[in-house]
Design a protein around this nucleic acid. Structure first.
Lengths: 361, 361
DNA sequence: CGACTAGTGTGCAACGATGTAAAGCCGTCG
DNA sequence: CGACGGCTTTACATCGTTGCACACTAGTCG
């Protein structure tokens, strides 16, 4: 049915192996021979059978990116960046959506939901530090996010605490005294919510502001709807506020919606800042200030680390943790710039590479 | 290195083929044997080698979804829907980003950028009706969108003209007389822009409104920034308007930004409606009215048609064109509902399946 | 002049699974 | 009692490539 190397070889009058050599850019081939093979390939419309090559080489050229949901803009943009970075290096990305379900996240690691790929970039949302054992597998992993530390894998993360503290201090520096937080996860010790909340508290302390529990708004899932809801609850309770730090942009945009619904002017009465700096932030009304965690750099670094490890032979290198630079992007919602202006950038903290020793299995 | 069927067979004391039979759910196996094999699999942590299976069965269980960019919310949400639909059927989706580049779109069809998958769901943005020849390939394709008709492939599309007409008439029914359009592609005869513009003109005609070229705003790419820009241009020109129909939601949200920047009240002075009904539409301020083209149904149908054709043996069935139902979702930006209320739905037109005869190659 | 190196091409045996066909075994039916 | 059919298991060839080892030619070096 389909054209194989055998057909090409026959037509070009060479051996099957020579066709393979041409296809793979083996250098020691006479120009004339190469030409003849190329022509045969074109004439017959031959395409390499990837399944056969993959079987033989024990490599597929695919990597998995496992994220909670593509419909969340942060992850869609992350996926975009990862795909582009991988593509540049000649690799292809297979996306798994885990819906933040524990079962699906475990499946990704166990391989039930990860056939066929050479490595995994994994942004877990359900698994936590107690699940480190699950990360001992026979393919390389790069972990994203703040839920799992100490696993035998490279890790690209962000300056959550420092960035959240900077965002809080930014609001305080604008003279705000009643700074609410939207998106907290009560009782959690790990994950972005906990870290960013910690940064918020540090920021309050440094600014000499009291910590008022009424200013903490819970939101389990970080969607617009939950952000709007949390904000609405707080406003309905009559809690007095003059600023809001939302733990991501979706929450912030939801909160913005609720603030407007209550007839509250942003930034006049309440200043608002989000986290992630997704594309949307630029275009809301007013344009949303945010923390840019360096998403593009995260994607590029993750792909780089993963490919390095996939290609590695010999002794496994020690695992690394990379923290890209993050910045505050001040826009209209904090009164940092006037309408139509670009965001003002405040560098938060420079990241870097840290080498982590983990007992390897 | 890795565990193979051979190892499992040895441990379970059966032949390799019996292991294969167990793994594949072949019914005629003694319960006791099956149990022994299962245990061996668990003990050894065996996983099927997909590359080997794919080579042997000539099928990978993967389908490609080729879209312009994931960072565009419409395509991110479409990808989400397609992945979920495929997953339900036990298939995996590989996403290709074409950046709307002609070269990359051609590559997707030629296979240079589409190894390893059994079929393709393709939303072209650069290829047009002159490129039909490229669609004659040896794997099934389902085309999305409105740029390519008559190609030898199934096609899932939308009621663009009817829906755009309905959106325009909706604005007219609110008493609006100067209805601007944002997102036109001057000179184009095919594609969503042309069809929706045609619908807009039909709507104007039916409402007895004159067609004023000053009301047509160009925007090559349908991003927020270009929407904002087109709107700004029109407002700066002093063109008088009392309604805007943006050809997609990103444009609409950009336009909303520009309207606010000009101090124009929505919907008080200008009513606004978009197209696509992306998630964001619900959460803008004011909430954006839009046209829901039935994205979920599109995704499900596309997957269904593709898998049907992949599984098909024997004579190829004639190609089908499916048009899901679309609806108008009236929200605050057209004054259809008050703040916080759900959108009001107006059914536009019922879709259906049409069978198309195309000369098969 | 013999040994070596670089350049060019090939044959064979895998990679790890599944399709095909067929071989036993058993009970049942005519 | 022999044929038959359902159940259970297996042997073997095969999917299309690439790694490895080797053959052969020319030119080069000591």
């Amino acid at each position: 049915m389909a054209v194989t190397m055998h057909d090409v070889a026959q037509r070009a009058g060479v051996s099957i192996k020579t066709v393979s050599n041409v296809v793979n850019g083996y250098p020691y081939i006479r120009a004339e021979t190469r030409q003849r093979v190329q022509s045969a390939i074109e004439d017959l419309g031959y395409r390499v059978n990837m399944s056969a090559r993959n079987l033989r080489t024990r490599r597929t050229g695919l990597i998995t990116l496992a994220v909670p949901e593509l419909s969340l803009p942060y992850f869609a943009e992350l996926a975009d960046s990862v795909i582009s970075a991988a593509d540049t290096a000649g690799w292809t990305v297979l996306i798994e959506q885990t819906s933040a379900s524990r079962e699906r996240e475990t499946d990704v690691l166990s391989g039930r939901r990860r056939h066929l790929t050479d490595g995994l970039i994994f942004s877990p949302l359900a698994l936590g530090p107690d699940d480190i054992a699950l990360f001992t597998v026979d393919f390389p992993i790069v972990i994203l996010g703040e839920r799992v530390f100490g696993a035998p894998a490279d890790h690209v993360t962000m300056n959550n605490v420092a960035a959240a503290k900077a965002a809080t201090l930014h609001l305080a520096s604008l003279g705000r005294r009643r700074i609410a937080l939207i998106g907290a996860h009560a009782g959690e010790q790990v994950g972005s919510a906990a870290l960013r909340t910690a940064g918020y508290l540090e920021g309050l302390a440094e600014a000499g502001l009291p910590h008022d529990p009424a200013l903490i708004g819970e939101a389990g899932l970080w969607h617009r709807s939950t952000g709007a809801e949390a904000m609405r609850r707080m406003l309905d309770d009559g809690t007095e506020i003059d600023a809001v730090f939302a733990l991501n942009d979706a929450l912030a945009l939801g909160a913005l919606h609720a603030l407007h619904a209550h007839g509250i002017d942003v930034p006049g009465q309440v200043a608002l800042i989000g986290f992630d700096d997704v594309d949307d932030a630029k275009y809301s009304v007013p344009a949303l200030s945010s923390v840019d965690p360096g998403r593009d750099q995260i994607a590029r670094t993750a792909v780089e680390l993963l490919l390095e490890r996939i290609g590695a032979t010999g002794d496994p290198a020690p695992f690394r943790r990379v923290v890209p630079d993050s910045r505050i992007v001040g826009r209209e919602s904090t009164g940092d710039v006037a309408q139509g202006q670009e965001g003002r950038l405040v560098s938060v903290q420079e990241g870097g590479i840290e080498t982590v020793e983990v007992a390897s299995g």
